[in-house]
Amino acid sequence: MTDGPITEEDRAAIQAQLGRSPRGLRAVAARCPSGHPAVVRTSPRLEDGTPFPTLYYLTCSRLCSLVSTLEGSGLMREMTDRLAEDEELAAAYLLAHQAYLAERDAIEPLGTEVSAGGMPTRVKCLHVHVAHSLAAGKGVNPFGDEALERLVGQWPSGDCA
């Protein structure tokens, strides 16, 4: 986990990763083993005032692709189903949601209890959860941690850039 200012080199790398100019950048929240940005922290509002509730944004192209493969496997539906069956998991996921809101609201409150990725009642976007896990550290977001565990051996390894 890192949290540092965005350099011009970072900004160029993020633009190349996204294929467009990044919006609302605040900091690099996590880096790949090769040193390029993997997760950025964004502002709760874009420059024009539009709410942007995705506090952590996954930018590493390789990791995004791997997470998309997990999403395509039906994992999100399986995770959501487990929330209804496992009270301990549901409680941990609620805490992840609350932590996400607290971090976002410490920057700028949006006046909403909506966080990101379907929290706290469903799993809607694994990219958000993986980004949250990488930025906040293991043990904060159970589904982000689980997705990263499923990718061990594929990431982090090598030069992702």
Rank of each mutant, 00 (worst) to 15 (best):
L46H: 09
P51N: 10
R150E: 00
E78C: 11
L95M: 09
Y93F: 14
Q15H: 10
G49P: 02
A38F: 07
E85K: 13
S73Y: 04
P156D: 15
P53A: 13
P5Y: 09
R41G: 01
L94K: 07
L134N: 04
A38I: 01
F143H: 02
R11K: 11
T121Q: 13
A84M: 12
V152T: 06
L25Q: 00
D105R: 10
L134G: 00
G24E: 04
R62W: 13
T121N: 14
E9M: 11
A90T: 06
P33T: 10
T2Y: 09
T112S: 15
L75T: 02
T54N: 05
A84Y: 15
E108R: 14
A27L: 07
E103H: 15
E47L: 10
C64L: 14
L148Q: 01
L66F: 08
V140Y: 08
A90S: 10
R41N: 00
P109Y: 09
M76T: 09
L134Q: 02
G117P: 01
A29H: 00
E149H: 04
S61G: 14
M76Q: 13
H132D: 10
L89K: 08
S115E: 02
V39A: 05
G137P: 03
M119P: 00
S21Q: 13
A29L: 04
E78F: 11
V67G: 00
V39Y: 02
Q98M: 14
V152D: 09
R31P: 01
E146D: 04
A102Q: 14
E9P: 05
S68R: 13
H129K: 07
A116R: 06
D105P: 04
L148I: 03
H129F: 06
S157L: 15
A102M: 12
G144L: 02
I6V: 14
Y56K: 04
V40S: 01
Q15A: 15
D145S: 08
G139Y: 08
A106I: 04
S43Y: 08
G72S: 08
N141H: 11
R122S: 14
R45S: 08
L126E: 01
P142L: 08
E103C: 10
E85A: 15
H36F: 04
T2P: 07
L83I: 10
L95Q: 10
T54C: 06
R150H: 01
A102S: 15
D105H: 10
M76C: 11
A106C: 12
E113M: 14
L94A: 13
L151N: 02
H97Y: 13
A96S: 14
T50S: 11
E78G: 06
P156E: 12
R122H: 12
W155R: 05
L25S: 05
P33V: 14
